[in-house]
Design a protein around this nucleic acid. Sequence first.
DNA 1: CTGCTTGCAAATTGTTTGCAACACC
DNA 2: GGTGTTGCAAACAATTTGCAAGCAG
Lengths: 141, 141
Amino acid sequence: MNTVLERLRSRGWALTPQRRVVAEVLSGDHIHLTADDIHELAVARLPEISRATVYKTLNELVALGEVRSIALGGRAKHYDPNPDTAHHHLVCDRCGRTLDVRPAGLEKINLQRSQRHGYKLGRTEIVFRGICPECLTAEDK
Amino acid sequence: MNTVLERLRSRGWALTPQRRVVAEVLSGDHIHLTADDIHELAVARLPEISRATVYKTLNELVALGEVRSIALGGRAKHYDPNPDTAHHHLVCDRCGRTLDVRPAGLEKINLQRSQRHGYKLGRTEIVFRGICPECLTAEDK
DNA sequence: CTGCTTGCAAATTGTTTGCAACACC
DNA sequence: GGTGTTGCAAACAATTTGCAAGCAG
């Protein structure tokens, strides 16, 4: 069922072990990892993979539209393996844990013409910020 | 009319030339600058100001709640001098130019309980992405 | 062979920190 | 003279790039 890899191969992407491992890590349920998280998980499956290769592969996946890179405020970029499904993000301000959310009634959000300032509009991103349950209990000091 | 400086002074913040210049640059109409932009503009008014001081001052302003740091996807953080007024951002995907927008009808956005995953909700940030007029005309190749 | 891919190491970029010199009550 | 602030330079962290060597067709 790994359609990601099929799609990539059909676009002429050389399927090396390194690239397969990166794609596999991303399609797991660990979501919104940083490049370094991804490298760490990839090393567990393929010890000799280098950070540079992980970075290059991630950039290629972003360019191919298979993955989106998102800026959540921490130092490092996070990678979102679901660029197509419409969803937004719920981010913990303490630990950075990020979940996908699909809020009801927000699909039709749009900027009225008077607020567009001549921009041609594209995607709208919503980030809900808060504190996750783990950090909340840890906070009960 | 520089209430920012008044507020800061009343909180015991030493008002040095360097800090005043940074605050002045931020209260200009050039909005959402990066730390380096701010340094550059500050140097124009006070040539000997150092990058380190600008960074330190910006971090203090953020800690004091006078300025918010925002991640817009580029490498560098941007600084938003209007943390209090409810507004969102319209970002150019080409050049990064960012404007404040106050879309109508979005004030009551909220995540329904079933989507909160136990998070205690805080602020909601919306980023509208698009291409600004300048980049649009430049693109007419 | 030819060309894409890898991985090391070095370069870049954005930001922070250690510390000595300084300014201001 | 102590407290807080500056600025240089060095340290850091995240990411990118140059390049020689490897592998695949």
